[in-house]
Amino acid sequence: MKFHAEPFWWSLFGAGGAISALVLPVLLVFFGIAMPFGWVDVPSYEYLHQLVEPLMVRLILLAIISLSLFHWAHRFRFTLYDGFQLHRINLLIAIICYGSAVVITVYTAYSLWNF
């Protein structure tokens, strides 16, 4: 059976689109807006560390970060391709987009493993 890459990348794009739409806004409101503006207290190091430590939480974080990156990779690839008409360097764009998602996923998994 021939392997078709497009449905594979699309399924990662879809999963990443859903998970990022559901969980990222609240996290960005907290860490990117409310905390820097001082509307909420900065969580203590100990509290956040013990919150992240359970294996289950680390796996969820890996899924959130990795799938979000694959969502970006697929969508941004086609933004460049369709939006900015970069047809000639299609392969190069695909390699850079998916490649960076793979590399950062591996680095995230490594960081969470050694947490």
């Binding site: 860490f31 969502h71 947490f115």
Partner: peptide, 15 residues
């Protein structure tokens, strides 16, 4: 998608 990637990286920095 750039915003999604930006914040995924911020989460990685946090970890």
């Amino acid at each position: 998608s750039l915003a999604v990637a930006y914040f995924a990286i911020i989460l990685l920095f946090l970890i």
